[in-house]
Design a protein around this nucleic acid. Structure first.
Lengths: 237, 237
DNA sequence: CGCGGCTTTGATGTTCATCAAGTAAAGTGG
DNA sequence: CCACTTTACTTGATGAACATCAAAGCCGCG
């Protein structure tokens, strides 16, 4: 397995409140079992830019982003990349086709330094099998995450280019960094790949926003100066 | 509940091989339980055009398309409709946000005469809770269906307009009707809403295909005369 | 310090939406 | 069943939105 040949910590105790494993702890599930699964997990660190999962790779593990930021993407026939989702720790977008296919039909890479847990899928399935509450919890997460991806897609593609750029800037500001000032974790090209437009137009529209004093740009550093106008552009776009 | 005030048959025995309930039958699950749930289901018939589920309605039932063809769609602020998916019986696209939200965030209507089962969601959840195999089966279906919708979206929106129209014609021909000749179950406007373009351009491109002898059109009746060229247009589009 | 990738701006062309106007089909009420 | 209304379909002309192409500055990295 390509994605696992790097140094890793094994068997540390699960301490993440929102971890897919941790879900169990509060339940009536056999303590022994959960500890066993917890020990089987592998935790690894990835630097910005490193690939966590390669498209086409066999799905043996359920991955869980413990810390950081990742992008889920696919490579098209013309060698261009299409970004499906950018997600932070514990939002479970990365469940996608884990429970229905043999191989990943997308890649995942870190766009900020990230910590990732790998848990044998077989063990997760065993837990689902044995524990009803856990099963319901996984179903809920899966449903929520898929639905969010679909919604994002609809939101993005029902807008014109200015609306899309406004949307993505507000996404980073509100959902990811919770601040008006932030450092873009992705290139202009990647933004283009995420919202379905060309790099040049991403830049052009960001420049317009800057000229109209809606945002401040210092290469990767962005400050949103006029939230209301940006929101207006997003809504009417 | 709006969608249930019409005549319906109650308590008939489940006979659909692929039914979400039927999954249980072959398992070691208590016979009594499954019979109980089976009796609680409501089966209804819808004519082409009738709405099965209204956006915003509370989710009390899991719905299951037993026969026919449906569209899942959303109404945008500008009163335009956006079709998320067209699906046939037992493809479970209609699971969408059933397990993660309180209300449907989309509508569902019949685009061909359809038979639909309503099963109390509480009962389904009970079965998931009690039966591990059933839980894994639901997770598999949910994952598969969501993934398919996302894939379709990526496929459609990475193509130009001709490519999209070719894609949708081949979709109806191959996945739905399994024939080169079929009657379109939707209007040109609905095709446009499904693949994100204007009605005029759907018509224009279909006319082009006709002029180039790739398809034959008699209002709603379509015959694909040159599969290879249509496929080529789909691929390069 | 020079190379390649990222960013930026401008000029140009293509694709697509919009508007308009007419025809065909389908539903509606007398 | 027919006149009437409404809705769906079709084609053309126009303009706007967007992609593509080109060129130059910037930045990080070996």
């Amino acid at each position: 397995m390509d994605s696992l040949n790097k140094k890793s910590t094994k068997g540390s105790v699960c301490e993440c409140k929102e971890c897919v494993l941790r879900e169990l702890m509060s339940e009536s599930f056999l303590e022994n079992e959960s500890k066993y699964v917890c020990k089987s997990k592998i935790e690894k660190n990835y630097k910005k830019g490193e690939v966590i999962v390669y498209e086409g790779e066999e799905i043996n593990n359920l991955i869980c982003i413990k810390e950081g930021l990742i992008k889920i993407y696919r490579t098209l026939n013309n060698n261009k990349e299409q970004i499906i989702s950018i997600s932070k720790a514990f939002d479970f977008s990365y469940l996608l086709n884990v429970f229905s296919d043999k191989k990943f039909n997308y890649s995942i890479s870190a766009i900020e330094d990230s910590t990732v847990c790998f848990i044998l899928l077989e063990n997760i399935k065993k837990m689902i099998y044995k524990n009803g509450d856990y099963a319901l919890s996984v179903i809920n997460k899966l449903s929520f995450a898929s639905n969010k991806i679909i919604n994002n897609f609809l939101e993005i593609h029902s807008r014109n280019l200015s609306g899309r750029v406004a949307l993505i800037l507000l996404f980073f500001s509100r959902e990811i960094y919770k601040s008006n000032t932030f450092v873009l974790p992705v290139s202009r090209k990647e933004i283009a790949e995420l919202i379905g437009m060309t790099t040049e137009n991403v830049i052009r529209i960001m420049s317009e926003f800057r000229n109209e004093n809606i945002i401040r740009i210092h290469t990767k550093e962005i400050e949103i100066k006029d939230n209301k106008r940006l929101e207006l552009i997003m809504e009417k776009g």
